[in-house]
Write a protein that binds this DNA or RNA. Structure first.
Length: 902
RNA sequence: GGGCGCGUAGCUCAGUCGGUUAGAGCGCAUCACUCACAUUGAUGAGGUCGGGGGUUCGAGCCCCUCCGCGCCCACCA
């Protein structure tokens, strides 16, 4: 057996799908300790992540890949650590976004509006849409390699979660934390719904500041006023000036006349007004401006609305009724100009509020909406982070979190949409009472009348999202899953939804379950374009992850995202990086291929007489690679524990490519050529190190490591080294993660010895390149080892092989003079003399050596000065000792160089 | 207005107990394709760690200040 050949390049296309299927069908994504299974132990603490549920609106983007990769990394690590690990998948109904898409789709394909279709039929269509896109998005998430428990998948609008939403709403309602009333809210005229403060985005745009006259009702004096939105003049109910403003004091308490409407409104005094800004007089429109609303409340001003739900002027606007808000602005201004009320216009940069979804300018409007009285919840959520029950990584976001919660305003939760959780409140036509119950009522709770009707609005999507960590586990029922897996462990998501989602989950978790919903929040950065631009579908500046995975493989993209980012910091993704990591995946593959071949080629020897000999002792290279590997394992563990996942990945990358593939594999070729026990022992070390590397890398690049591990396992089992793979199990995903162990005494020596060899070999290679020695040409050399002679003698074959020396013509001595016509290299305690007769320009060579000596001498001087300073007294003894040793080595080197130069 | 981040090699970025010789990838230069991999290997060039000041025996890292870029929150009409 074992005669199969692995393909020369890693073929992710034929691998990924097959591997994922194997995992999923093999049940590897299920928690190892499961309340639904026999042998369940409630005492073992699980590791749980609730997925940030992707919207069912559409396509996979890089943000998805980012969080899936991060969470999969965490969950695979914990799973391999032996911790029962559960990753709960699911999707979000995404109220506005989904409804809009379906509406647009209907209009485009069938030219039907949702109103024409009717509520029920429309919702039916959205469900169809949801089915379709749900299938797409979940298959794409599988494609990334997500090892979540699909049997526990949830949808924010499914039966169970709808029950949770209902329970949450009723509880808040009963506690008096939910109320309904007319308030100034952000209205989106295009979407025809209210949106929350968070859903409004501000952008600086060029605009105009309009100056006009507010004429006094009696007399012909006027107060000059400036505004950016002249149309709102129609709903003005006062003009405000600063109480101390000398210019306007005389007007306070008098009346002015609203232009074109003739309504008389008072001039009031309020500290809010900045005398220096504009004209120092402010028109007050409580119905269309939040600050004015507050002022209006202070002065008991009437509140007028001059726009309807489509942003057309209402009857309040008198002659302008029916006009669009912007038409009205122009017409009104033109009329005022004609009436001599206009002073001037000047260009002005304004901060325009637009809806996050539609992009339309939002109008602040008075509207009857539902709100959550959020402050009590916010206080609990603040405390939870303050006292460390929830830890936010990176820590600096705690400040952002505090700042937001400390200044939080009531949350407008009603949306004038159809797609979502309908508000569970019924209005009685008879008594006007509201009925809010867990089960749909038949009668009014107040008068018992039958004439009740449910509120037509639905809840903000984030209302259900806030319940996600527990609703997805069965809450409000005390299900076994809820009891065991809640509170969850890790909330991993982008910092852009800290307020939208994370803060609300913490508030809701504390309110409804009495516990924090998770103990750690890990915030990753946003993925941007190569040039740092925010990726945007509408601008066409996004990178579509699917073609990237098609071209470079999933592992390459995952590794790029995981290793290229630090928590909370954005990263710029370039295809060059993905390409580089595709190469890394291929490197893993080929190193693995080499090992598999090495193991397979043992087979023939296994029956021969040599194979029965005792195992060969480790070579220096063996010891070195093992010591290096142990150091990496320790480092990776430390980095994972401190959530420095990217750095952990970089460490393994570095080790695998630079140490294992570039050096150890080369040394192994030489060792393997010896055959017999030596070859066997080498194959064993190759396999052992590869095995641990694959385990370390698996959370980062699950596919290539799983595939290769399978090959390695099969090769080992069919070889004389079968006992190595005895305890392995069938899949890497279920294998154990390497445990760090304390460094053993011999490790430091192995590391030091091998680096001396590396330096020596590099010096020789360098010289060859410099002197243009043909690469294939084997050259003689004389090594003078001083105290390291023994090491050089033992490793002569290795040095010769890797430095291109002719083994037959390598002589090693403890001391000796430089042969004529030779070039000399000094590597610490070692001198290398290379006769290069005819190839050496003696003068140039002398110059090179002098230059090198100067460099060493400079360092000697620097260190001598350092050690002569306060450093020697004040720095820790260890650090000083290190420098002393370094100085000694440098002095030795310098002496040797001087001797060479004569 | 308040807060945060960033500024390190030509480019993109690591560098989380401050330790004295600052790293990687890409790009560049030279060389090498039977022997795991050209999605490769070898060798090399390239940095006053944004400027200034301070603390310290010692600063890319800590403090102050200035400059440039980006983001978040608030929303003075």
């Amino acid at each position: 057996m074992s005669e199969y050949q692995l393909p020369k390049a890693y073929d992710f296309k034929s691998t990924e799908g097959r591997i994922y299927k194997m995992w999923e069908e093999g049940g590897y994504f299920k928690p190892s300790n499961d309340p639904a299974k026999p042998g369940f132990d409630p005492q073992v603490k699980p590791f749980v992540i609730s997925i940030p549920p992707p919207n069912v609106t559409g396509e996979l983007h890089l943000g998805h890949v980012m969080f899936v990769a991060m969470e999969d990394l965490m969950i695979r690590y914990q799973r391999m650590k032996g911790v029962p690990s559960l990753w709960v998948p699911g999707t979000d109904h995404a109220g506005i976004a989904t409804q809009l898409q379906v509406e647009n789709d209907l209009l485009r394909t069938e030219e039907v509006s949702r109103e024409e279709l009717g509520r029920e039929a429309f919702i039916e269509r959205v469900w169809q849409w949801k089915e379709k896109y749900h299938a797409i998005i979940t298959s794409q998430i599988r494609r990334i390699g997500a090892s979540c428990d699909w049997e526990r998948e949830r949808f924010t609008l499914d039966e169970g979660l709808s029950l949770a939403v209902r329970e949450a709403f009723v509880r808040l309602y009963e506690k008096g934390l939910i109320y309904r009333g007319p308030r100034l809210i952000n209205w989106s005229p295009g979407l025809k719904t209210a949106v929350s403060d968070l859903e409004v985005e501000y952008a600086e745009e060029p605009g105009t500041l309009y100056y006009f006259k507010y004429m006094l009702a009696d007399g012909d004096a006027f107060i000059p006023v400036a505004t950016t939105r002249p149309e709102t003049i129609l709903a003005d109910t006062a003009v405000a000036v600063h109480p101390q403003d000398a210019r306007y004091q005389k007007f306070i308490g008098r009346k002015v006349v609203v232009p074109m409407l003739g309504r008389a409104v008072p001039v009031i005094a309020d500290e809010y007004v900045t005398p220096e800004f504009g004209t120092g007089a402010l028109k007050i429109t409580p119905g269309h401006d939040p600050n004015d609303y507050a002022i209006g409340e202070r002065h008991a001003l009437p509140v007028l609305s001059m726009l309807d739900s489509e942003a057309k002027v209402t009857a309040t606007g008198g002659p302008y009724a029916g006009l669009d808000r912007f038409e009205c602005r122009q017409k009104l201004w033109a009329d005022m100009k004609a009436a001599g009320l206009v002073i001037k216009e000047e260009p002005y940069t304004l901060n325009v509020p637009r809806t996050q979804r539609g992009g339309e300018i939002v109008e602040p409007m008075i509207s009857e909406q539902w709100f959550v009285r959020i402050q009590p919840l916010a206080e609990a959520a603040l405390a939870a982070v303050r006292d460390g029950r929830v830890r936010i990584i990176p820590e600096r976001f705690e400040k952002v979190y505090f700042n937001w919660l400390e200044n939080i305003k009531d949350w407008c939760i009603s949306r004038q949409l159809w797609w979502g959780h309908r508000i569970p409140v019924w209005y009685c036509a008879d008594c006007g009472g509201k009925t809010c119950t867990r089960l749909d009522p038949l009668l009014c709770a107040h008068c018992g009348g039958k004439n009740i009707q449910q509120d037509p609005d639905v809840l903000d999507t984030w209302f259900s999202s806030g319940l996600w960590p527990f609703s997805s586990l069965g809450w409000p029922h005390e299900t076994p899953d809820y009891k065991y897996f809640y509170p969850t462990t890790m909330m991993e998501t982008g910092y852009d939804i800290l307020f939208f989602w994370v803060a609300r989950m913490i508030m809701d978790g504390l309110e409804f379950t009495g516990q924090v919903p998770f103990s750690t929040v890990y915030l990753h950065g946003l993925v941007r374009n190569e040039d740092g631009q925010k990726m945007s579908k509408s601008k066409g500046t996004g990178i579509d992850p699917l073609p990237v995975m098609d071209e470079y493989g999933t592992d390459a993209l995952r590794f790029t995202l995981l290793v290229g980012s630090t928590p909370g910091n954005d990263m710029n993704l370039s295809l060059k990086k993905v390409e580089g990591n595709r190469n890394f995946a291929n490197k893993i593959w080929n190193a693995g291929r080499f090992v598999v071949n090495a193991v397979n080629s043992l087979e023939a020897e296994a029956s021969g007489p040599e194979a029965s000999g005792e195992a060969a002792p480790w070579t220096l290279a063996d010891s070195w690679i093992w010591a290096r590997l142990q150091a990496v394992v320790r480092e990776v563990e430390r980095l994972f524990q401190s959530h420095q996942y990217g750095e952990a990945g970089r460490q393994v990358y570095e080790f695998f490519w630079s140490d294992y593939a570039d050096w150890y594999v080369e040394a192994a070729k030489l060792q393997a050529a010896a055959g017999g026990p030596r070859a066997r022992q080498t194959a064993a070390t190759l396999a052992r190190v590869l095995d641990i590397c694959l385990r370390l890398l698996h959370p980062f690049t699950p596919f290539v490591t799983e595939e290769l591990w399978g090959h390695l396992r099969r090769a080992l089992l069919g070889s004389p080294l079968a006992e190595l793979a005895q305890g392995w199990g069938e899949a890497l995903i279920a294998a154990s993660f390497p445990e760090p162990r304390p460094a053993e005494a011999w490790e430091a020596a192995a590391l030091e010895d091998f680096s001396l060899l590396q330096e020596t070999i590099r010096a020789i290679r360098n010289l060859r390149a410099e002197k243009k020695v043909p690469p294939a040409r084997r050259i003689p050399a004389m090594l003078v080892g001083g105290g390291r002679t023994e090491l050089l003698e033992a490793q002569a074959a290795l040095i010769a092989a890797l430095a291109g020396l002719d083994r037959e013509q390598v002589s090693i001595q403890t001391a000796g003079d430089k042969p004529a016509d030779a070039v000399t290299l000094v590597v610490g305690p070692v001198e290398v003399h290379i006769p290069l007769s005819g190839m050496v320009d003696l003068d140039a060579e002398r110059l090179r050596q002098e230059k090198e000596l100067a460099g060493v001498a400079a360092q000697v001087a620097r260190l001598e000065k350092l050690l002569g300073s306060d450093f020697a007294n004040k720095a820790p003894a260890e650090v000083v000792q290190k420098e002393r040793e370094r100085l000694a080595a440098l002095v030795e080197t310098a002496e040797k160089m001087r001797a060479q130069l004569g």
